[in-house]
Amino acid sequence: MLTTRRVDAYHALTVVAPGIAEPFRPGHFVALAVGGPQSSMLTRRAFSVHDVKPDYGGTVEFVFTVRGPGTAWLAERRARDTLDLVGPLGRPFPLPRDPVTCVLVGGEYGSAMLFGLADALLQRGCRIDFVLGAASADRVFGAMRARRMGETTTLTTEDGSLGVRGRVTDVLPGVIADARADVVYACGPMAMLRGVTAVSVEFDIPVQVAVEEAMACGIGTCMTCVLPVIGDDGVTRMVRACSEGPVFRGERVRFEDVGTIPFDALGAPGSPGGGARHVS
């Protein structure tokens, strides 16, 4: 581990990890072991990659907020400590072939992963506009960098301490209309992604969302992180956010059914085609 810094309400850790930095694509995440070698915390913690740099053969930076014991332990790490990371994991954001106009929407630390994406989009000649929001000013991540990279940057806070008072979805329709956006990319809390998807659908433009579901392994083996997503064939399946996501087409995610098994999902109890009569 190289450096650790505070960014407003967040901690940012940079680690030397050439094996992750090199194959990294925007949207990837890493899964960290926490608590050290004798840890009693066995499940891995997932963090989006904020930044990769070529220094020292390749570094990876991620940004986090302290939620429970695992992130509290991480916040106490210092330069030169070693960390156990697996990555890059997940399916990255698909990029448009043509130089189109993209709105990038970030909520809380969800903004952190948008900058790698913004770099890639700018390289393709895309125009980008940012909408970043959070509960309060100290929780809006990356406003300065967004202002440098974006054609426009709109900030929202629920308490009005920065930018527009309200939520990202309050300002998003105006931003999409003004920029004549072709695509929306979003990362943040599920409720925000649901709202952003609804707005994008209203404008009839594609929306790519990076979801967050509780994870234990991050590599697709434990089946913890599932949510109902509609496939190309129109069938809803319980898919893994870690290995089949975290990036999905927003309109394919059944946000209103997250936390349930929709009755028409493949293999749902009593669903057509058999399904399960019993549970274990």
Partner: peptide, 23 residues
């Protein structure tokens, strides 16, 4: 038959272990 499993949350970390209800 295919099975969709249990609703989430399906996992809770516990001391030196975890609870799962994948179904």
């Amino acid at each position: 038959a295919p099975r969709a499993g249990r609703p989430t949350p399906r996992m809770a970390e516990t001391p030196s272990g975890m609870l799962n209800a994948i179904g």
